[in-house]
Nucleic acid binder design. Sequence first.
DNA 1: CTAAATAAGTTTATAAAATAAACTAGTTCA
DNA 2: TGAACTAGTTTATTTTATAAACTTATTTAG
Lengths: 112, 112
Amino acid sequence: MNQSESSNQELQPITNIDPLIHAPTRLKIMAYLSIVESADFTFLMNQTGLTRGNLSVNLRKLEDAGYISIKKVFVDRIPRTLIRLTGEGRLAIQTYRENMQQVLNELLGDKE
Amino acid sequence: MNQSESSNQELQPITNIDPLIHAPTRLKIMAYLSIVESADFTFLMNQTGLTRGNLSVNLRKLEDAGYISIKKVFVDRIPRTLIRLTGEGRLAIQTYRENMQQVLNELLGDKE
DNA sequence: CTAAATAAGTTTATAAAATAAACTAGTTCA
DNA sequence: TGAACTAGTTTATTTTATAAACTTATTTAG
C-alpha cells in the first residue's frame, strides 16, 4: 500500500459524510427528532429557530430521502403537520455518527 | 429551566459548529494538514482529489480566517506553494472536534 | 531560436444549495 | 363582514461550492 493509498484511506470517512445530515440546519432537525417520538411543524420551528420557509424546504428534502415521515392531522379544525423519524432515518443518523466518530478520531492525528 | 430552554441547550452545539471547518472540502484540507508538517499545493490537490480552482479558493478562505499560512518558494525556478496549519488553526480543529463530539454524544439520545 | 506543450496557480463563470420573502388557504376575532 | 392571524408551501434571492477559463512561467521538441 503506497502513501497515496494510505492518505486516500485516511480521508475516506470525510468523503463518506452524508451531506443531507451534515448540513447544520438538517442536523438540528434530525438531532431533535432523534430524541422525541414526534414533533409538530410549529414546535420544531421554534426549537430550531428556523423560518417557516427554510424548515419546510428542508423537511421536504429529508422526507424525499426517506429519513422522516410527515403526517397531516387536524386539531379542532386547525391543520397540524406531525414529523417523525423513520427507521431508515434512525439508521442514517447512526451511520453518520459512526462515520463522524472516525473523522474526529483521526483529526490532529491522536487516536482516542 | 423550562423545556424550551432545555431543547435550545441540546441543539446549542450544532449552532456552534464552525461552518468553515465543517464543510467537507475544507474539512479534508484541515484534516490532512493536521497530520503533516506542511504540504505543497499540488500534493494536497492530489491527496484531496480537489480541482486546482476549488483548492485555491478554499485555501484562501482558510488563510483569511488565520487557520493556515501559505508560503511561496521556488524550487529550481519553479514556483511552489507550501501550506501549513497555524497554531490558531490547530486550536480551531480542537474546538471543532470537542464540539462535534458533544453533538455525536447527544444524537439518538444515548450517552456514551 | 521559436513555437507548442506543460505546469502552477488565480480568477471568474456557472451550478448548486440555503434561506427568507411572498403567497395561499383557512380560522379567529372585533 | 372585513381584518388579523395561523400553518404551511412556493419561489425569489442570496450565499456558497465548484470547475472552466485565464495568466504567467518553464520545459520540450523541432
